[in-house]
Design a protein around this nucleic acid. Structure first.
Lengths: 227, 227
DNA sequence: TGATTTAAACCGACCGGTTGGTATAAATAT
DNA sequence: ATATTTATACCAACCGGTCGGTTTAAATCA
């Protein structure tokens, strides 16, 4: 049975990630990982030099997925409207909708899990987390600066911390979701973040918040069927 | 040296808490705890039946301190003004000011640390965390309901999730603070939460936010010296 | 005297990691 | 077409060390 190495590697990583989010990295022994993945210790150490190597691979995978999704949502939002405020609110709506669809509590975030066991990891692994957070800050800060050029905020705010607030709310909501066994907690907090941005910048705060669904409708209306 | 049992117990708990926030509960061995506390294994197991017993004592201590501080800040805020919106904003200002004073990154929250290793703890220990979160929600929800009676929100919101947002922001900001080695990250996020509440409810959103410092001044002005 | 702490030896279970070897499939050589 | 080699993928058994926890006996202080 020496056939599908990539699948085995993925099954190890999936098993490990789930276990880590349940019990933390330290308590997730290689033995429990291989038990859940249904392979042996030899196979594990064939794919990963050390347990720390697995940690790095996991956070690297999450980081790539995470940043890819961010860019995807940003470009999708930019395709729906030219207004930077609407773009940001729609981008956040994508995340809110995704979280709204959860039926089981959010399993948690590997970044947070690792940060609360930070001493266990080397600089390279933690550096990946810092880089992801930095990219989030940079990308949202860009957008917020363009928003502020057009719409003066009702309250003076720091754009960087306002960008960071997105991550703060997400990470905090994940914890809420776990504590209260509440699948909807994350979406609800995203909604509050969108509300805040709307109240800060929108010319008419009483107007309904832009959503991806509504913008897609109007986009379709603008191009009549058959033309 | 068989004198101060309470002090020894506290030194064990302090050492353990610091270590847990650095490396997590699982990686915090009894040996490292006693090494940092400067005592022996016998002394440890004299004060705590098991390592799990220590975990429960730690979260219980944090919970009591946490909820005590909340009540203290609430009553202090209520002494400064009769307006429920001002009360809440001032109460949150107390936390913001406390976090503003930090010169080193926030060491982290035991609740979050435990939740990300949830499987390791029994229902009693995790139940304490849930109870604390519930009390926070109840106390802030009460306040928010009274606010909404007087000030209709500019956007329809769920009071419970708006109450939960306080914890979400705090927990998320702790993580931000650790990732970016930024002592000011937590205060900045508290400020955004206060901004949001202000924009949601305040009759004049362009007016400056109520702060503890400003209300204490006006309170003193209302009672002229010597009278 | 009784509460508190030290020092040191010890236990079974489990830890991350290593070893030597095997199964498989594709490439290469004849 | 067949024999051989090579690289990949995987396994079962095992290793030294650490884990949480126990035990015992003596010492220290109030």
């Amino acid at each position: 049975m020496a056939r599908n190495g990539a699948a085995t590697r993925k099954s190890i990583m999936d098993a490990a990630q789930a276990l880590i989010l349940e019990t933390g990295f330290s308590a997730t022994s290689v033995d429990t990982v291989i038990a859940r993945a249904g392979i042996t210790k030899g196979a594990f150490f064939y794919h990963f030099r050390t347990k720390a190597d697995l940690a790095e691979a996991l956070v690297e995978r999450d980081a790539a997925e995470d940043l890819h999704l961010l860019e995807e949502h940003l470009t999708q939002a930019e395709a729906l409207t030219d207004d930077p405020l609407e773009q940001l609110l729609v981008c956040m709506d994508f995340y809110e909708q995704k979280m709204e669809a959860l039926v089981t509590p959010y399993p948690g975030c590997l970044y947070a899990s690792f940060i609360y066991e930070a001493q266990l990891f080397d600089d390279r692994t933690l550096g990946i987390v810092r880089r992801v957070f930095s990219v989030w800050r940079v990308r949202l800060t860009e957008k917020l600066k363009r928003i502020m050029e057009r719409y003066p905020p009702r309250i003076p705010v720091s754009v960087e911390t306002l960008a960071d607030m997105n991550l703060a709310i997400a990470e905090g909501a994940f914890i809420l979701s776990k504590v209260n066994h509440d699948p909807k907690a994350v979406a609800a907090q995203y909604r509050h973040y969108r509300n805040y941005l709307h109240l800060l910048f929108a010319p008419d705060p009483k107007a309904p918040l832009p959503s991806a669904a509504r913008l897609q409708e109007t986009k379709l209306d603008a191009v009549p069927a058959g033309s």
